[in-house]
């Protein structure tokens, strides 16, 4: 009884199978196409050095999208991410200033930030599961609260972080750029969770909650874990943001949650839960950023930039949705 609109019959079944196993293949394909487009126009773009700089500026979104995906897999959503960034941002900056910008002070500040972010996420999860509330509206409400706390720490943009913070993110360690280390780190965490079976359990909750419950999964606890992870990665995103802005702002992070969600969707995650991969969201995030660059380098009028961006995202989503539809049809 599906509304059959467009059937992607020209796509060979073999490819459909591959997409099913790795929902992010589509995203990777788009990344490659966009890279080629950029390379044709501006060969310098694809140089390692320039890509490293790009990667550094993409990091905040990539981390946020990565964290958001764990929540999306369970069929939830985290609209408080943007405000969480603000909260963690001002706390880290305040603590750094408290310790006068010393190295131990910075390390301490960063740890505090990570703890605060994770805690905020866990609180989200606890409120949702204990009070049995809808994720969308609840995380919106907690987002307002986090933003309020951020304002209480710092009521206007300001503060200063040593430049070393900035240089750290531009540098490299063992010849490998720091952003790459960071990415490897978060992918490592993902692999750890995957091997522990946690990712499968999150997917199970999003796919069929009752079934997951009947299979013996402690659904509430796993949902709290997902929100905690979202908070944790959001804190990492904030650290990357400070690496760019080297200052604090209670208004930081506005709109990040929506970009993160759309990155996850472009990366192949199903917003109704149960399907997708945080790795896909990384590529989704890269697409979100690359589209801007393509539009810029092709000299498209500023007026059309946003329009193009919106249309390209809708196009990518449509293709993904049609693919999913045709997959579920071939199930019969």
């Amino acid at each position: 009884m599906n509304t059959n609109f467009i059937k992607l019959q020209w796509l060979r079944t073999g490819w459909k199978e591959r997409f099913r196993k790795a929902p992010y293949l589509l995203a990777i394909a788009i990344v490659i196409i966009l890279m080629i487009l950029l390379g044709i126009r501006n060969p310098g773009y694809l140089k390692l050095a320039s890509l490293t700089i790009k990667l550094k500026s993409w990091m905040p979104l990539l981390f946020a999208a990565f964290g958001q995906t764990f929540v999306i897999l369970t069929g939830g959503i985290d609209l408080s991410q943007g405000s969480m960034i603000a909260l963690v941002n001002v706390i880290i900056v305040q603590v750094i200033m408290l310790f006068g910008g010393s190295l131990p002070g910075m390390l301490f500040a960063v740890s505090v930030g990570i703890i605060v972010g994770t805690l905020a996420g866990i609180i989200n999860g606890l409120i949702l599961t204990r009070l049995r509330l809808q994720p969308l509206i609840t995380t919106y409400a907690t987002g307002i609260i986090w933003r309020g706390f951020a304002l209480s720490v710092m009521n206007e943009p300001g503060g200063e972080v040593p430049m070393s913070f900035y240089y750290f993110f531009s540098g490299s360690f063992l010849f490998i750029p720091i952003p790459v280390w960071f990415l490897s780190f978060i992918v490592g965490i993902y692999l750890f969770l995957l091997r522990r079976g946690a990712v499968t359990q999150l997917k199970a909750i999003g796919g069929y909650t009752i079934g997951a419950f009947e299979s013996g999964i402690n659904v509430d606890r796993k949902r709290v874990l997902a929100y905690g992870l979202s908070g944790f990665f959001t804190a990492l995103a904030t650290i990357a943001i400070i690496g760019e802005t080297i200052s604090g702002s209670p208004l930081a992070g506005t709109g990040y949650e929506l970009e993160a969600i759309s990155s996850a969707a472009i990366g192949g995650a199903s917003l109704s839960g149960g399907f997708g991969s945080p790795i896909g969201s990384l590529f989704g995030g890269i697409i979100t950023r690359l589209v801007n660059d393509v539009i810029f380098f092709y000299g498209i009028d500023v007026k059309y930039q946003q329009l193009m961006q919106g249309l390209i995202i809708i196009l990518a989503l449509s293709f993904g949705a049609l693919l999913a539809q045709s997959l579920s049809r071939s199930d019969k």
């Binding site: 509304t3 609109f5 467009i6 959503i77 969308l136 929506l258 969600i261 759309s262 969707a265 199903s270 917003l271 109704s272 007026k303 059309y304 930039q305 946003q306 329009l307 961006q309 919106g310 249309l311 995202i313 809708i314 989503l317 449509s318 949705a321 049609l322 999913a324 539809q325």
Partner: peptide
Amino acid sequence: TLIGIPPLIMTLSMGIVVESM
């Protein structure tokens, strides 16, 4: 409905297009 994009993300992306309009 016809394409099957989740409402949240569909309308959010449409928002971007509308803003550019």
